[in-house]
Design a protein around this nucleic acid. Sequence first.
DNA 1: TTTATTTATCGCAATATTACGATATTTTAA
DNA 2: TTAAAATATCGTAATATTGCGATAAATAAA
Lengths: 110, 110
Amino acid sequence: MGATKTEDYNEKTLRVAALFQALAHPARIAIIEQLAKSDTCQCGELVSELPLAQSTVSQHLKAMGNAGVITGTVEGTATCYCIDRKSIRQLMAFLDKVSGQLERQDQKCC
Amino acid sequence: MGATKTEDYNEKTLRVAALFQALAHPARIAIIEQLAKSDTCQCGELVSELPLAQSTVSQHLKAMGNAGVITGTVEGTATCYCIDRKSIRQLMAFLDKVSGQLERQDQKCC
DNA sequence: TTTATTTATCGCAATATTACGATATTTTAA
DNA sequence: TTAAAATATCGTAATATTGCGATAAATAAA
């Protein structure tokens, strides 16, 4: 088949999976690192930092925006992108919960 | 083309992306939630919790294992899976770093 | 208004992912 | 040894993702 089954998972699970998916590519990690590093929002500079064509970068940015990982603001002829902090918090909350549960487990195996 | 370019990213970026990719599916999030919730390692129970065929679940587990997100131990005729805590820590470290950098930014936009 | 600059979108090709059923493999139990 | 139970692997089909060049769209500058 090839299409992910989505109808049998709860909202939160789907949301977390979508966030992970939006970051599941080295170019997107590199984009996040750039956006986090620089004090001002990055626009065209992102393209020059990546080994990809402009259209490909634009595509990645769109996917990340759709998932709510970044936000884009048109600034004249440029578009400025920033990280959406809420999405980072949501991912951290998920991992924190998992981590806490793991600490409370008494190691029966592994 | 379709194949991700990997040769132009540094090791850490590739590693983080691979970890995110290993979790970029609702079934895998559900698997992690199960493994975190239960005190003992889960084996066949995982299949019954998911709306997928046994072979499909096995495939997901293999992918997660290859990325180092879980570890599997053969236990007689069953296989027991646990979360690899190191991978969770690595993801948290990445997000923590991003989060810290964001807090230190003076909001020029967004 | 025309031109340059920047980003987005379209169309396409190549590859990867997702999913399933069938079957192989492994270990335990009879 | 044979049968069962549990997982893994294989083969295959459908869909998604990745990437590029070409081109459209939008704004700024001349």
